[in-house]
């Protein structure tokens, strides 16, 4: 039995799982431990019997006759009924905890998470904050976002291109981000700290670089270090607001703004305002309408030579006010 205590204790110190940092995680660890203990019991029983029979009934000069027993209804009934009952218990327990992910209390903090080939963006619609990812030394795109402890927060997931999955191992929660749909869960962090976030649904070349870090702050830290400061906040009045906005949506990762219109992925934008550009739908004058349409429906009129670059649509992410700022910014690139 000492093995079982070792198992129970070990998981407490994070032998099996990272230390539980949310209510849901505690429920998962409890069920995990229940199944683990049962599995070890059954496994030790089965392997013990197998080993014992294999040795005891090994063929030898003294052991040459085998028993004619070939079935035993009572035994067969028992070893069907007992596992069935245990499995039903496990199902019920698992289902009960699973439903807690979908129950959203009214005071839950709302987070909108948008997955895009290969970075996450976490925004707080009610607090008008948007944390964008920045690449780390090793080339990982890590988004740092902040949540208060002991207060449920709801993650509302969607994706801009392919399937992604927002997995926080410390909270034991995960849900796929599906394009054109909203999926999500509600979870209540219970331990302040910094926990990694991974993309768990394979999404292409840099699937392993799509990371995040959740900072669970105590009540004071939340008031002082997050609400008080302008972390993840973009101040429209700041002089460098427009270029920051341009960077916030990742436009700079594909479009250059410097003179010479260098091509990173898409066409360079320096001095294009008012010019005629050849596109897949004939030549078009670059005016406010065309910029707006290319931001919302990039694939409609693609500048010739840039087919297949597959620029994602920002329809629904860029607010009206931000759209106007971006158009002014591009206009100012002369």
């Amino acid at each position: 039995m000492t093995g079982l205590f070792f198992l129970a204790d070990a998981s407490g110190k994070g032998f099996w799982m990272p230390p539980a940092a949310s209510e849901y995680a505690e429920h998962v660890d409890a069920l995990f431990m229940f199944i683990l203990v049962l599995s070890v019991l059954f496994f030790v029983l089965l392997m013990g019997l197998t080993g014992y029979f294999a040795v005891k009934y090994k063929a030898s000069p003294t052991n040459t006759r085998s028993s004619p027993v070939s079935h035993n209804f009572k035994l067969e009934f028992l070893w069907s009924a007992i596992p069935t009952v245990l499995l039903v218990v496990i199902f019920a327990w698992g289902f009960r905890d699973f439903t807690s992910l979908s129950a959203t209390p009214a005071d839950a903090l709302e987070l909108r998470v948008v997955g895009q080939k290969w970075n996450w963006t976490v925004s707080y619609p009610k607090l008008d904050r948007e944390c964008t990812s920045n690449s780390s030394a090793k080339g990982e795109n890590v988004v740092d976002f902040y949540v208060p402890v002991d207060r449920p927060f709801t993650v509302q997931l969607s994706s801009q291109d392919v399937l992604h999955s927002f997995w926080i191992p410390a909270f034991r929660v995960k849900r796929d981000a599906v394009p054109n749909r909203y999926t999500g869960y509600t979870v209540t962090p219970t331990r302040p700290g910094i926990y990694p976030v991974f993309c768990a649904e394979y999404c292409g070349d840099s699937h392993s670089q799509m990371r995040g870090t959740v900072h669970v702050l105590t009540k004071e830290e939340w008031e002082k270090d997050f609400l008080g400061t302008d972390k993840c906040k973009l101040d429209p009045k700041a002089p460098d607001y427009k270029p920051k906005l341009f960077a916030k949506y990742g436009c700079n990762t594909c479009h250059s703004v410097a003179a010479g219109r260098a091509v990173i992925v898409g066409p360079g934008l320096h001095g294009i305002y008012g010019k005629e550009e050849p596109t897949s739908a004939g030549s078009v004058k670059v005016d406010d309408d065309y910029i707006r349409e290319s931001i919302e429906y990039p694939s409609k009129k693609i500048v010739t030579g840039f087919e297949g670059k597959n620029m994602p649509s920002f329809k629904g992410r860029v607010t009206e006010q931000e759209l106007a700022a971006l158009i002014d910014y591009i206009k100012s690139l002369q």
Binding site: T99, A103, T104, A106, A108, Q156, Y182, T183, G184
Partner: peptide, 12 residues
């Protein structure tokens, strides 16, 4: 999306 008790993704 039927199990979400209070949060209706379409309303949101």
């Amino acid at each position: 999306d039927m199990m979400n008790q209070t949060w209706d993704s379409h309303a949101y």
